[in-house]
Design a protein around this nucleic acid. Structure first.
Lengths: 176, 176
DNA sequence: CTCTTGGGTTTCATTTTGGAACCTTTAATC
DNA sequence: GATTAAAGGTTCCAAAATGAAACCCAAGAG
């Protein structure tokens, strides 16, 4: 399957990755988050080529994740900023950074620390259950069919790859 | 910069993305998480070519995220499973899925639901502060230099892209 | 009036992907 | 006993994505 078709899957991960799932996009968004919002500045800081950067920013704008804001009318200079949708990627950024902090840091320690302004502490955010508010770990969660797939099945629609709906293991998920 | 050099950055995100930051890897890990652990099965379900799948699994094994477990000695058949390190990617997977559920679901609703076994409820995990346990949002967090960068600066080391340490906007971060 | 800066576009070589065919070993079937 | 069918790859080639470098253009600065 061509990568361009990946977002046709009935899968929230595939659809999200169709927007941000390439080499550079997360780094671009991270830089914008940290205040590095201008074209040339990102180009230099990230080591991404201008070509690629133009391309990725355009795509992010198309998907409503980033918008362009003019900061110099005369010269038509722009800053790239995150939309509300873009800010919603923050949990993804944070969890990626935390994984790196835990498993890939060198002996000097973590590159950056994150201060929670509300309480003033250096924080290492964790995932909590929306219902019981306890921390959540991989093995404590079970997936089940949601309406997005259930309704399509009820209508007798075929979807997914070669008529098998997706993710592949849903037969098992259903059976459990 | 060549992508292969991205993990030389002093940046937890760059280092993590050097492992999982390509088109297919997250989908592979998601499938393994959902119980789809065999080569041919993943190949068919994901629509990834065998070639690419071999390549990605090999890389994940090299990085200690996945291991191969024999389930049929005679025929030398294997299952791919997540290591402890691999399980630590779960928060990343979850937050990616949540973004997709919120912004990219169609009118039928979310494809999958996630049940927190401990409390039995369908959960939509959120990020909480490790110190005050309140929910954390993008605008409530401020980055500051951590030991991994501070110590290198104190020793007078140059690092990052062209001697500028990374992320680019750390000058600003420092100044704040 | 020339130089620099920001923000790009164009061109072209190199890498990475995708698709398909092929290989090998063990089991299952006729 | 020969034939066929998985499972799990590998090989080969064409197509697409990427990276490096050069070029462009407008507005200010000197």
């Amino acid at each position: 399957m061509r990568w361009d078709d990946v977002n046709t899957q009935v899968c929230s991960m595939a659809r999200t990755l169709a927007i941000v799932g390439d080499r550079w996009t997360f780094l671009i968004i991270r830089d914008i988050t940290l205040g590095n919002r201008r074209f040339t500045s990102m180009h230099k800081a990230l080591g991404i080529t201008k070509h690629r950067l133009t391309d990725r920013l355009t795509r992010l704008i198309e998907h409503g994740v980033v918008y362009k804001q003019c900061y110099d009318e005369a010269r038509q200079r722009f800053e790239y900023r995150l939309t509300e949708k873009g800010l919603d990627l923050y949990p993804v950024l944070t969890t990626i950074v935390q994984f790196g902090d835990k498993w890939e840091a060198d002996e000097d320690g973590v590159p950056l620390e994150h201060v929670h302004k509300a309480c003033g502490a250096v924080t290492q955010p964790y995932l909590a259950c929306s219902e019981c508010h306890e921390p959540i770990h991989a093995r404590e969660v079970r997936a089940q069919l949601g309406p997005g797939i259930r309704r399509k099945l009820e209508r007798g629609e075929t979807f997914g790859i070669q008529g098998r709906y997706y993710p592949a293991s849903l037969e098992k998920v259903k059976a459990r």
